[in-house]
């Protein structure tokens, strides 16, 4: 993972979140916890990844917050799989769903406020995070 910044960068912090921090939480609690951190200008790096329905719920709740919080513009989100090249998206996703897709240690999820994380460029095996 590469991180790049430009001269306009303002204060933010990075929150490394082991999967154990959200393992016991419900989908609502997980999304709420992540969004609370993001609203506090934190870039969350989650060890593992969310389930598809959690990702889409995260987008849904993010939009509800953009609608209600004047200064909040949304999030940047990306998942990087260490072994992306070993299996196609369908196979990995199907295998993931079958396994409950939780806490896969070979994955990392980056979730940051759009006001801090300008862009996340992603190809199968790496992500570049641009701060701005």
């Amino acid at each position: 993972m590469t991180m790049k910044k430009n001269s306009k960068l303002r204060g933010f912090s990075i929150h490394i979140m082991p999967y154990s921090e959200i393992r016991e939480l419900t989908i609502t609690e997980r999304v709420k916890k992540i969004l609370q951190l993001v609203l506090g200008n934190r870039v969350v790096i989650l060890q593992g990844k969310l389930r598809p329905e959690e990702e889409i719920r995260l987008i849904e709740d993010t939009m509800a917050m953009v609608d209600h919080i004047k200064t909040f513009k949304g999030i940047e989100l990306a998942v990087v799989d260490a072994h992306r090249g070993d299996a196609g998206f369908f196979l990995k996703m199907r295998r993931g769903i079958a396994q409950g897709l939780t806490g896969e240690s070979n994955s990392l999820t980056v979730i940051g406020p759009a006001s801090v994380v300008k862009e996340i460029k992603k190809d199968p095996s790496k992500i570049e995070v641009f701060f701005g």
Binding site: R51, P52, E53, E55, I56, I59, L77, A78, V79, F89, F90, M93, R94, I97, I120, K121, K122, D123, P124
Partner: peptide
């Protein structure tokens, strides 16, 4: 555009699920 955006993957992942 780059097809690997997380929004694309999230939509497809949800349809698959």
């Amino acid at each position: 555009e780059n097809p690997y955006s997380q929004v694309n993957l999230t939509i497809i992942g949800n349809l698959l699920a």
